[in-house]
Design a protein around this nucleic acid. Structure first.
Lengths: 239, 239
DNA sequence: CGTTCGCTTGAACTAATTCAAGATAAGTGG
DNA sequence: CCACTTATCTTGAATTAGTTCAAGCGAACG
């Protein structure tokens, strides 16, 4: 399941968390990692288990989610190539506050808590980098919280799709495809609604020609229209 | 409006952020601060303005809130004595992601960005402490996000009240009073609902004898009942 | 080739919002 | 101290956005 990482291709220099470190440092850091693969649907870690590992995703997409006591799932977001996750492993006694599950086959570099803490001590800039990272995520989550508290479902779905375009958009001839398996249920769990409402909303948009959908597949033909819905702009007039 | 802080009473040793530092260090840190007062309703800082200052509240309670583009307010939480806020000032070029407004007369210690960064460098443990702090807040916010996405209004209001008891609960003869001016509108903005729904819900609870309310005032007589509603426990039987 | 899984759609329902009107309490100035 | 003003709170009635339930469709999969 795990193997020593190859250092000869420097996969870390695209990772924002490590940006600014020189090649020697990156090589050292990569050396301390182990490569880990996770097939689709496998969990990197699950909510409430001790936080022992920090990951940088190399390939694939993974889902950050929480399960409510009643068994309902809430999707907090996705992690893609060159994104890091699990900084909480730097904190002693911490447990993961959510689960990370591969939605496509994934490949990641992994560091244990001890190694991570050593890195933070050895390269003090990383501690500040980590702080900036978590703060950034915090701000994003705040905005989503506000969105959930104040916006209608339709707009929340539009926003979720636009975020997914940023995260995993793949340009096609006729628009942008969201390059990960995405069910109606997933979208519902991302926006705090039900799969029925998502289905109805997507159907409507499909009728209007904004997008095309299929089984776990969304292709956005006219992102501007989604943007208009998300931002409450006036409808484009033909004059 | 601001004056040099007095160091002779060491107000910092109760602040979790500085916990573990020796008295000499605390004195040094206090020396670098300035004392700042804010009368009720004054803003320490507002959303989107450059983050220049890190605060530790000494006295009073202040409200963290965001305003939506449409002008609706969302309350993210409260800050009380010995709690710190504005670590984002350590990040260059950052702006505050929300506003901090005094809800009672407040007194705080303040450090500018430069001083804060110097502290983080001088006492490396503080960087890790800051990381832990933000991570902790992040986890809390995640849970509230999940709550908002999955729970009914009644339960969200009960949870908000219980959190306020933790934050600003004052024991009275007949129960716990929430020791800050708290309108129905405030509670609505904390729970993503309307002031009407909050009013109806509190009225119902008052009829049931769980609490007493007044103008901007809530006294919780039977916290266990709120807890029952918040956690969906069975109703207490008299057997 | 049948079964599973994801998706759609209609119809009934309901939790919560919105609107409206009045009650209550707190400040303000004469 | 009282009248006046303002802000908060309450409650009913109408409305609605979104949920829930149910039934059926169609593509993928072993």
């Amino acid at each position: 399941m795990t193997e020593k990482a190859t250092t000869d291709q420097q996969p870390l220099h695209n990772v924002r968390f490590f940006q600014g470190l020189d090649s020697a440092a990156l090589a050292m850091i990569a050396q301390a990692s182990r490569k880990q693969r996770a097939p689709r649907d496998a969990f990197f870690f699950t909510q409430d288990e001790p936080a022992t590992t920090f990951y940088v995703l190399i390939a694939g997409q993974a889902r950050l989610s929480q399960i409510t006591p009643e068994g309902r799932q809430v999707i907090l977001g996705f992690v893609g190539p060159n994104q890091e996750v699990g900084i909480v492993a730097a904190i002693e006694q911490a447990t993961y506050p959510l689960s990370l599950q591969a939605v496509t086959d994934c490949e990641a570099l992994a560091w244990g808590s001890a190694a991570l803490v050593r890195l933070l001590e050895q390269y003090p800039i990383l501690a500040l980098r980590a702080l900036r990272m978590v703060t950034g995520r915090f701000v994003q989550l705040q905005n989503r919280y506000r969105e959930l508290a104040t916006e209608r479902v339709e707009r929340r779905i539009a926003r979720a799709l636009l975020r997914l375009v940023e995260q995993a958009g793949q340009c096609e001839r006729v628009g942008v495809r969201i390059d990960l398996p995405l069910s109606r249920q997933d979208l519902a769990e991302m926006t705090g609604t039900t799969l029925y409402t998502v289905s109805r909303t997507l159907s409507q948009w499909e009728r209007q020609g904004f997008l095309e959908t299929g089984r776990e597949r969304v292709l956005i033909r006219v992102p501007q229209e989604l943007n208009r819905i998300a931002e409450d702009l006036p409808e484009a007039s033909s004059s």
